[in-house]
């Protein structure tokens, strides 16, 4: 879902930067309040964790594979602000140090994959928790977070032809409108990448619950 440099008009990424910056400052402050003294060590570790999650290729039924971003895992375990900040920090490092994505589109990537995915996943989990089986809730949290992020990306990409054209009337940034971006970007995330995030969230949260239950049993026995 990373958008590279050069495909978004300056009016888009400058506006996105003005929206993302105060949110990132708030996320940073919230995280420090929530985790207190250990926040720096934990934030850097969770950002590295998010980076590694993006490296795992997850097989999806149907023969293809995709990678997760770990937003739902972090949001369920540490809250949406912590998750949004960690994912954004990872995206920033990817853009500037590893050349994946781009600095001009960092704010858009942060708003979609960082904030939208984390908050949607967190609230879907909060709403559905205790209403259906845990595995389904974890899967739906991950899936809905990534699908919501893809809607933001699709809309931002889809409005680019309206924001810049050359002398011949051809688009000069991302060329396809909403009629193409909504079905392709959102559709592929509903069918493929959302499944990868959902499966990753379900597998990891199931494992975390198993370990937590084992720890509880050990402490009860002793």
């Amino acid at each position: 879902m990373h958008i590279p440099d050069g495909f978004l008009s300056p009016s888009t990424y400058i506006t996105a930067s003005f929206i993302a910056l105060p949110l990132l400052i708030r996320a940073f402050k919230k995280t420090k309040e929530l985790i207190d003294d250990e926040s720096f060590a934990l934030l850097s570790s969770l950002s590295a964790f998010s980076f590694v999650v993006m490296m795992f290729n997850i097989p999806i039924p149907g023969g293809t594979s995709g990678h997760a971003i770990g937003a739902a895992i972090l949001a369920i375990l540490f809250g949406p602000w912590v998750a949004a900040f960690c994912i954004s920090l990872t995206l920033f490092i990817q853009a500037l140090i590893f050349g994946d994505g781009g600095l001009s589109v960092f704010a858009v990537n942060s708003l979609s994959m960082g904030f939208t995915a984390s908050f949607v996943a967190f609230y879907v989990h909060k709403f559905l928790k205790n209403k259906m089986r845990d595995n389904i809730v974890f899967f739906l949290s991950g899936w809905s977070g990534i699908v919501a992020a893809s809607v933001v990306v699709a809309v931002i990409l889809g409005i680019q032809p309206l924001l810049g054209v050359d002398a011949l009337g051809h688009p000069i940034y991302f060329p396809f409108g909403l009629s193409v971006t909504i079905p392709t970007v959102v559709g592929s995330h509903i069918l493929f990448f959302g499944l990868a995030e959902g499966i990753a969230t379900m597998l990891v949260m199931r494992f975390v619950e198993k370990i937590t239950n084992q720890d509880k049993e050990v402490s009860n026995e002793s």
Partner: peptide, 8 residues
């Protein structure tokens, strides 16, 4: 994958 990601 579940154990590896949770391990990380």
């Amino acid at each position: 994958l579940g154990s590896a990601i949770a391990g990380f």
